[in-house]
Structures are given as C-alpha cells and as structure tokens.
Amino acid sequence: MRYLLGLIIGAATLWLLLSGVYKPIVLGLGGFSVLFCAYVCHRMGIVDRESVPLHLLARLPLYALWLGGEIAKSNWDVAKRIVLPERRISPTIVRLRAHQSSELGQAIFANSITLTPGTVTVALRSGDAIVHAITEDNATDMEGGDMDQRVRRLERPFGAPARREETP
C-alpha cells in the first residue's frame, strides 16, 4: 500500500512539473492517467520495494553528492589522458565482489561504477562484477571497496544500526 501511494504521488508530481498547464480539464486528464497507470501497475504486480524504492529516498541526496564528486574527479583524470599526447592508459580488468544484500543495491553499485568515467561494469553475475578500468590505478581504487561500502550503507533500512564488515 505504501509503495502504491508512493507511486501515485511520484507520478502526479512528474505530471505537474512536466505539463505546466493548470486548467481543470488537463489536471483531470492527468489525475485519470496517474490513477490508471497505478491500477495497471498494481494488477501487473510490479509495485514493490524494488520498483518504488522509498527506503532509499532519505540517504539518496548524500550519496548523489558523493557520486557527483567522484564523477568530477575521474572526468578530469580521463579527460587529461585523452588530450595529453603520449598514451598513458593501462587498461585493466578486475573482478569485484558486490556485497549488497538486494539485487537493487547491486544494480545501483554496477550503475555507479559505469557512470564514473574510467570504469565500466562489463558483467554482473551472482554478486560478482567484472569491471574494465582505463588505468591500473582506477582498478586498484575500485578494489579498495569504498563505493561498495557506500552503496551498502545507502540500501540499509532506515533506522537500522550500522553494521560493520561481514565479508565472507
């Protein structure tokens, strides 16, 4: 129920921000399509924790800020490697363990890796991410596991105590 309500509110906000026309008939059509979409999604049984990740909302801004900083740093680094005349790349492939408990968390982890220039997730199978990095340094950075930790903290249920490493 919580997720259905979240979906309706989210879709209504999207409509209001994108339409920009606030006449009764347009608002009525908007309300109708929001409710209809919510009904169809409900019938398909796809409204759950994964498709409406409400539990991420509180921590997402901080994570986005940190990720933005990482993106800025690595953009600068990769841009330098592209422009400078000699070839300063050492492509490396590493296998990382994604320690997130949910598939959503693993997907966020893999997408964050890909979003950062200099590292691309090539494959993600049963918690193992194969990552292609443009330099060995990038790869060792990734092996440090900082991003993995942060995504784990992101997906932790709100109010739950901070658990430390329980790496097998």
Partner: peptide, 14 residues
C-alpha cells in the same frame, strides 16, 4: 572498443 567507452562516458557525464 572498451577504452572508447570511457571516452564516451566523459561526454555523457561531464
């Protein structure tokens, strides 16, 4: 190809 993807992601993000 794989290193080109990193270049593409510079354009795509920054």
């Amino acid at each position: 190809f794989y290193t080109r993807m990193h270049a593409a992601s510079v354009t795509d993000t920054a």
